[in-house]
Computed example of a mutant assay.
Amino acid sequence: MTSPDPAIRPQLAVSGAIFREGKVLLVRRARSPGKGFYSLPGGRVEFGESLHTALHREVDEETGLRIEILGLAGWREVLPTPAGGGHYLIMSFAARWASLEPVLNDEHDDFKWLHPEEIGDLKVTGGLQEVIEAARRLL
């Protein structure tokens, strides 16, 4: 029996709702999937990497920030659509900003520190508000 192609398996990912003075950090994706949508920093977990290690690495790569992880705020499953896309299980954590200022890599083209109530009509990824609210409860 052969193993399925890794490209057709669900991918494990992490994201961080990073709070600073009551505001959460949102980053805008510069390319697909989700180009133009604001979301939380994060990405795929590498083989052999813990969820916390992956989140620290992804936040560092994407924003340059140092964070303190507070706990799991929730999860979201993204399924492929007829138009394509991958299958992801995203574990979302609540975190506090610890140091440094955002310096974005090429995966993002904008960032905002916003109070959750200020997100309003901003173009955001699915389920974002629920994750942010769950994360805020852990602060």
Rank of each mutant, 00 (worst) to 15 (best):
residue 101 E to K: 12
residue 2 T to R: 12
residue 39 S to H: 07
residue 124 V to E: 01
residue 14 V to T: 11
residue 5 D to Y: 11
residue 139 L to E: 14
residue 18 I to M: 06
residue 96 R to C: 00
residue 12 L to P: 13
residue 14 V to E: 04
residue 83 A to G: 00
residue 10 P to M: 13
residue 111 F to E: 01
residue 108 H to V: 00
residue 117 E to R: 13
residue 45 V to R: 01
residue 47 F to N: 11
residue 115 H to I: 10
residue 35 K to H: 12
residue 106 D to V: 10
residue 127 G to D: 06
residue 74 G to F: 10
residue 74 G to K: 07
residue 26 L to M: 05
residue 100 L to M: 12
residue 125 T to K: 12
residue 53 T to R: 14
residue 8 I to Y: 12
residue 102 P to F: 07
residue 66 R to Y: 14
residue 37 F to Y: 06
residue 103 V to R: 07
residue 136 R to D: 02
residue 95 A to W: 00
residue 133 E to Y: 14
residue 86 G to D: 04
residue 55 L to R: 02
residue 35 K to I: 09
residue 62 E to P: 06
residue 38 Y to D: 04
residue 134 A to P: 00
residue 101 E to Y: 04
residue 127 G to S: 04
residue 57 R to W: 06
residue 22 G to W: 14
residue 2 T to Y: 15
residue 77 E to T: 13
residue 73 A to H: 01
residue 33 P to K: 06
residue 136 R to S: 14
residue 3 S to L: 13
residue 92 S to N: 09
residue 93 F to I: 02
residue 102 P to L: 02
residue 109 D to G: 02
residue 9 R to E: 12
residue 4 P to D: 02
residue 11 Q to F: 11
residue 82 P to D: 01
residue 28 R to H: 00
residue 99 S to G: 15
residue 62 E to Q: 15
residue 123 K to W: 11
residue 129 Q to Y: 04
residue 129 Q to T: 00
residue 117 E to C: 07
residue 25 L to F: 10
residue 9 R to V: 12
residue 54 A to G: 14
residue 97 W to C: 06
residue 16 G to A: 14
residue 24 V to A: 08
residue 63 T to R: 05
residue 125 T to H: 07
residue 7 A to S: 15
residue 65 L to G: 05
residue 129 Q to S: 05
residue 76 R to L: 12
residue 104 L to W: 13
residue 125 T to P: 02
residue 120 G to D: 05
residue 81 T to G: 00
residue 34 G to N: 10
residue 47 F to C: 05
residue 99 S to W: 10
residue 85 G to A: 07
residue 123 K to I: 10
residue 134 A to C: 07
residue 121 D to K: 13
residue 8 I to H: 02
residue 94 A to E: 07
